[in-house]
Design a binder for these strands. Structure first.
Lengths: 197, 197
DNA sequence: ATGAACATACCAACCAGTATGTATGTACCC
DNA sequence: GGGTACATACATACTGGTTGGTATGTTCAT
């Protein structure tokens, strides 16, 4: 039934927006229902609880966003360090001043939910691992191609790159400053350059 | 009146714990009152609202923790890079497995509250600036003492160090793994080493 | 006619906040 | 030094609003 799928998808997207704005715990189901024009009966028909709705937002919405905006772009041909810097810079140029103080949807959920809900934690961890492995992979390829220092550990470096990327976005989010994001990213680029052969 | 100060302090500390555990929005005033044995009338006598209680937790509790655990230790004599690595390593060794998945109290509040409350944002920003300036200062001193590369910008480097420090703690918090924290910190140490003369 | 896909109305629990009352100092005047 | 005025520091009981969740009913396609 196409209508049912449309209802489900509308709920997922509205839930994503609401959670992104207020966090999961402060996200209001009633607001989601108002925005979509869907009733509570429909919501509890498709998702059995607020928790399961949150899980679905991670598994379907955020996971897809990560693929589209990071995992796929990073796999293009070229010097791995150049590719990463370019992907980060393009993301930085597309960002709006509204988006900057909302931060990274995945990191927001991680910081809020990982200590209090194991299901959230596992799902977020799964995405972080995919993210890290995609960075690790191009670093390893770079080592084999002779463009990345053979002395570094690709897994450890990928972990740190991911961490400082989230750190930069977190700092810029609080400062509400794109300029601060770019200053912070310069530090990351400096680190990335130090991985070149 | 000493009793009044004791009541106020007890409320602040219990509020800090409750906020650290559940975030500000999900923090329950009733739980804080139960834990302290203080009544609601007393709470609203000392702090006029939940918001002002939150502000006081930042200004008094978290600010002091930052001073004690980071700003002061970092100012000891020695090679600035060595000092920073040592301070970070000591903090890492003292951390318990319970603390690791609670994360950094300041970063938790920043990620949750900065987009939705300007008063929180400004107070957190003020602490982050003090933190950054303390790192910037020892880098600048190191440049003058010939132990830190003169080519780097101390303010930008300090910003990135702070960001990646928070990033490492955030990743480790979600992974709930001290090992991952240490792996991540190794990456930061690599960056710090690259700042040496 | 059976189950999926809703719609409506409702519920108990919890929330921050407040109105009102009281006990204990403390300052000041005579 | 004793009485009065006033403020501080609470205590108790309550309110209106919101929350996630549910019970029950209805529509409609197969």
């Amino acid at each position: 039934m196409a209508d049912a799928d449309k209802t489900r998808q509308a709920l997922l997207e509205a839930a994503y927006e609401e959670i992104y704005r207020h966090g999961f715990q402060a996200a209001s189901l009633n607001t989601i229902l108002e925005r979509t024009g869907v009733t509570k009966g429909a919501l509890y028909h498709h998702f059995g609880s607020k928790q399961k709705l949150g899980y679905a937002v991670i598994d379907e919405i955020i996971s897809q966003k990560l693929d589209r905006e990071w995992l796929t772009p990073i796999q293009q041909a070229g010097h791995p360090i150049d590719v990463m810097i370019e992907v980060i810079q393009q993301a930085g140029q597309q960002i709006t001043s509204q988006q900057i103080d909302q931060g990274c949807p995945l990191n927001n959920l991680a910081q809020e939910m990982s200590p209090i809900d194991a299901g959230f934690r596992q799902r977020i961890d799964h995405l972080y691992q995919k993210w890290q492995e995609s960075i690790e992979k191009i670093l390893r390829d770079g080592q084999q191609g002779g463009t990345v220092k053979p002395s570094i550990n690709p897994a450890d470096a990928a972990l740190f790159i991911l961490a400082s990327l989230e750190g930069c976005m977190g700092i810029a989010k609080n400062a509400q400053s794109i300029d601060e994001l770019k200053r912070c990213a310069q530090g990351l680029f400096g680190y990335l350059d130090s991985l070149r052969c």
